[in-house]
Design a protein around this nucleic acid. Structure first.
Lengths: 346, 346
DNA sequence: TGTCCAGATGAAAGCGCTGTCAATCGTGTA
DNA sequence: TACACGATTGACAGCGCTTTCATCTGGACA
């Protein structure tokens, strides 16, 4: 045959191990999963055979037979955004020691792709799914419910959680960032963001509310592109062109804030004297920039950790959901050097 | 039974679809995989049944039966480093459209964890493995060879490739970065890096060679910590304390360079007038920093893309390896504002 | 009109593992 | 000495899918 199939013999199976150890397949299987059920004698023989044959268990077969895949599905909207690095790391830190594997899919901030990612994920039969965000398509919500596994929505508070929800109010956080600038005395406060991210849009609403309260003109500049450091510079330029008197800017996230800061340096705009800048998320770089960037610290690691812990509890506790199915973890305003009172309060 | 097993009925199987469409399981299977083999009539019936039942194929069973998992295993040493974002994205861009799934594991720059990651990966039976780096443990090399799947080592040139190798010379690149500074006239050239990364260590060797050629004193400061922006600042402080006359610094990567830049701004050290800075990797942020950061542009996207393409060729071409099993993709020196001639050539 | 063949369909046999339950063994008890 | 019991061990039947190969069509062709 020209068919390039793997030769059977190349793969060492549990059966090969069993044969070599002169035990049944079941016993060999048990040595690997529940060694205490097997006598020391046989256990030693099997262990030796495993080593000698360099046996690697076929997780596919194992998962199929036991209907336990040991997988947790995670869907995030971006991998470049530092936020999700922290988030994913926190998930790994809980799941990996617990013997689970974390499968990550990227939705690129597009609801359509998220729906597809959820379908793909479900085809892998994960034992639980964690979503960054709460705005799934109706179709996706339906599939998720139908899957009958724990589903945790994170990063925001959902009005109608699918199952479990651990988040924070993006609206309140956006409001808090804007309010910080208004309270310092700024009245010409701009907002720049990359609103592909729905959460960034929610934060803008918080900003708009603050502007309303302080009777300030809303000045929003945004462009439907993935957020990045250079983009922050571009958006700042546009903001300054459209509203030259602006004295403060709330950036949709810290990358944009960093780009805006660099652009200020390039143009000789003093931060915070000529322009106050506040970002969002409090990435590691924000604290060490010069001037250090004010930001809103989001509990992304805590959200991930809590989500993971709750899932483990549910899986181990035969599907029982915790009493509290929705948790708000809040946020913190971190005021640093990049925000200050405006020089002249005109 | 108290056993919390999934109820059989909850999962829709291919069999259910077939029954509903009044065809055999095989036909249903074919409609999903090779629709052109099935008549339009039956195809329509099966498609309808799939939709009505919201059938999700069980990839586990599929993979087990066909011994084609549709998975590509990738092991990278870090996810926080922007380099690997670009790298992974490039891999996705080739593999996902080709119908493959990319599984990523993180070795955290530790050979031991890489070995473990490779074992874990092999248990998933990927159809190929891509490694970022060439320094696998002997045990890992053995398992990889034994797996009988395409293995591509990337990011560096290997002296003894396991299978395929697509890389660049980290030594030459380090040398080029250092030489750039020496050629500008600097003689007090420092080097800072986080040498958990073996490649960073290789670059240091390139730097040392350049220092030797220009008869300059080597000034290396490093600390075994994961690289980060803040760390760049700390290392710069240490460098300046140990060698105050330093007029230029080669940073092990762009994050360190950025941290060093911020630290200079904080201390009123003018870049490049008082201190020239060159980074490594040419991350997106480097071009838009102020002053913009000189760097070495590494072909990480190209390495990933080539690796992916070669793998697809091998898989589709019944395992035939290409003629050229080792490719050097080179690098480029990008001189920007952060490097210039020293003010006084003492 | 009969033969042959390509195309379409289905039956059966696993892929490598685990869950279930029956069989076996040695030991303590009556 | 007979019997029960817990601890080990193994035989068997799938998990849900694909592969292989046999079967069955309906023309094309002689």
């Amino acid at each position: 045959m020209a068919t390039p199939r793997k030769t059977k013999s190349s793969r060492v199976t549990l059966n090969d191990v069993a044969t070599r150890a002169k035990v049944s397949t079941v016993t060999a299987s048990r040595v690997l999963r529940k060694p205490e059920m097997v006598s020391a004698d046989l256990r030693a023989r099997v262990t030796a055979a495993v080593r000698e044959l360099a046996y690697i268990p076929n997780q596919l077969a194992s998962a199929l037979a036991s209907s336990r895949t040991g997988r947790i599905g995670v869907i995030v909207p971006s991998l470049t955004n530092g936020v999700f690095n922290d988030y994913l790391r926190a998930l790994h830190d809980v799941f990996v020691p617990a013997g689970f594997q974390v499968l990550v899919l990227n939705s690129h901030y597009m609801p359509g792709r998220e729906e597809k990612a959820i379908a793909t994920m479900l085809g892998q039969f994960p034992e639980a799914i964690i979503l960054a965000g709460v705005s799934q398509t109706p179709q996706a919500r339906k599939s998720l419910k139908q899957a009958g596994i724990p589903v945790v929505q994170t990063m925001e508070i959902a009005s109608k959680p699918i199952d479990i929800n651990i988040g924070m109010s993006q609206y309140d956080a956006g409001y808090a960032a804007a309010r910080h600038l208004f309270e310092l005395g700024h009245r010409q406060v701009g907002q720049i963001s990359a609103p592909l991210d729905r959460r960034a849009r929610t934060r803008i609403k918080g900003y708009l509310q603050a502007a309303r309260e302080f009777e300030a003109e809303p000045m929003v500049v945004s462009v439907d592109q993935p957020s990045s450091v250079p983009l922050g510079g571009q958006l700042l330029i546009e903001l300054l062109e459209r509203w030259p008197p602006v004295t403060a800017v709330f950036c949709g996230n810290d990358n944009l804030a960093l780009g805006a800061l660099f652009e200020c340096q390039r143009r000789g705009i003093a931060v915070p004297d000529d322009l106050s800048i506040i970002g969002f998320n409090d990435l590691e770089v924000s604290a060490c920039a010069f001037p250090s960037l004010s930001s809103i610290a989001t509990p992304r690691r805590e959200m991930a950790r809590r989500a993971a812990e709750i899932i483990l509890e549910i899986i181990r506790g035969s599907g029982q959901r915790p009493k509290q199915r929705q948790i708000d973890l809040g946020f913190r305003l971190i005021a640093r050097q990049s925000t200050a009172k405006p020089l002249q309060v005109d």
